[in-house]
Amino acid sequence: MTSIPTQHDHQPSPGDPSAPGWKRYVAASHFRSAADEFDACKLGFWLFLATEVLLFAGLFCAYAIFRMMYPEAFAAGSHSLDVKWGGLNTVVLLISSYTVASSIRCAMLDKRFWLHVNLIITLVCAAAFVVIKFTFEYGPKWAEGKRPGVLFDYPLWSHPQEPIWWSVYYCATGIHALHVIIGACLLAWCLYRSVRHKAYGPTHYTMLENSGLYWHLVDLIWIFLFPLLYLIH
């Protein structure tokens, strides 16, 4: 097995204009080496991901409490969601998680073309997720009057606390959708930097890896949201 270089083997060549961006990259001067900077960025990003998990923890907690208080309202609300679209979005996100991981692998192996292809597939998946969410899920539901809180206006409701269910549904999926959009912006920025500056290669891909981690988190949260919202009785 041949060992591929990692970020810890980064040897910057800042003076060489013909070298790709990742080779010319120089660590910030307050770090002892590029390897130290990479480790610091990764630690920082994992901490940030922890804060994101805790942010959603509040929503999951609210979900648990209201489901315990109003199980019928939650069952009724959940039944009016379309498992097909939810399932399709789950598949879309799982595919995108695979491609984003592949794009990082391609950066490590210095395959820039496939790095770009993978990132583009990821972005297409992100767009598909958002389009499905808004046009096939939020749109029709909202039009039917299945809205959060006082906006709820669905004549055929089966439980008086259904508005609470829709509040939890819209808050949780809405904040998640916002994260999908933020994650897509990060990956689009990575794609731009890679196309324009050849910014990521075997010994420097910090930004790409962290954006990928963020994307996995977005995926992970959906993996929990999907069964909790769509698959309950």
Partner: peptide
Amino acid sequence: ERLFHVGI
């Protein structure tokens, strides 16, 4: 809650 009265 304040803006849309989601009721949580």
